[in-house]
Amino acid sequence: MSAAASPVFTLAQSATGLDPTILVLAQFSTAVGALVAYVSWRGRLPYPRTTRRGLLAPLCAAAGLSLTVALVLWLLAIAEPHRWQSLHTSTLPAPLALILLAQFLGAAGEEVGWRGFVQPILETRMATLSAAVITGLLFGLGHFPMASAGLAVYSVFVVSAIGLSVAAAAVTTGRPWWARVLVSTVLHWGVNIGMLVGFSNADESLRWVANTAIATGLVAAVCVPFLIRSKRRVSSGVSAPRVAVGV
């Protein structure tokens, strides 16, 4: 259903003339797919049990991870001959506050489907880390317009999406669906805004996509041990702590 909704949103984007810098309407296609699946199989879909509560720790962790991605991108930019430019608000097609809000809604539209639906459903059938990798793989492949930049760019972008997915799993696993969506949205939005503000001339070049893959990959590598430890705690019958290191 998401695949069917995506071209409809794309046509709506063209018809309205909405600048993609403000919002990409196709981001809501995953939410449509999740909603249809939920309505169709309501009560028959397995969902992992809630083992963690509270929002302050995961929200802070999500913000910290997104800042770390931006920091790694900045460090990589220093080492490169080409300098990415920071944002000049005069170049924006709309007020920055409006863009920030629209970008948050767009990120939420994607996270409803990926981290609110696909990730937890997969967690009921496999290890959390495996579920995160598969979710990220599907998430990356779902951005098929990136394929127009070439197979290499598309493939590396998928790697960056997997890295983001693993990081999102680390701060959302064990929480109710609405908390998963909110926390992963903050992470997703933070990464997007960090790129917009710090690297406004970022493009679909292999160099830039490779930088994002390195940044999200390093963050994911830090998160992997906590995902494994969390899985072991649940498997042994011990409830996961409300606030774990890195979560």
Rank of each mutant, 00 (worst) to 15 (best):
V8D: 01
F9H: 05
F9N: 07
L11E: 05
G17P: 06
G17D: 05
T21V: 13
T21E: 00
T21K: 11
L23H: 06
L25G: 06
A26G: 00
A26H: 03
Q27H: 13
S29I: 09
A34Y: 00
L35H: 02
V36E: 00
G43V: 04
R44C: 02
T51V: 13
R52G: 10
L55N: 01
L59H: 04
A62Q: 02
L65N: 04
L67I: 06
V69Y: 07
A70E: 01
L71T: 13
L71A: 15
L73V: 13
I78Y: 12
I78W: 13
L87E: 09
T91R: 11
L92Y: 15
L92M: 11
A94Y: 15
A97H: 09
L98V: 15
V112P: 02
G113T: 10
V118W: 08
E123M: 15
T124L: 03
T128R: 14
A131I: 12
A132M: 12
A132T: 11
T135K: 07
G142N: 02
F144S: 10
F157V: 06
F157H: 12
V158F: 01
S160H: 12
S160R: 06
V166D: 05
A167H: 08
T173Y: 11
R175Y: 07
P176L: 11
W178S: 10
W178V: 14
A179Q: 11
L182P: 04
V183S: 05
S184M: 04
G190E: 03
T212R: 00
A213R: 08
A215C: 05
G217W: 02
P225M: 05
F226W: 14
S230V: 06
K231G: 10
R232L: 09
G237R: 10
P241S: 00
G246A: 11
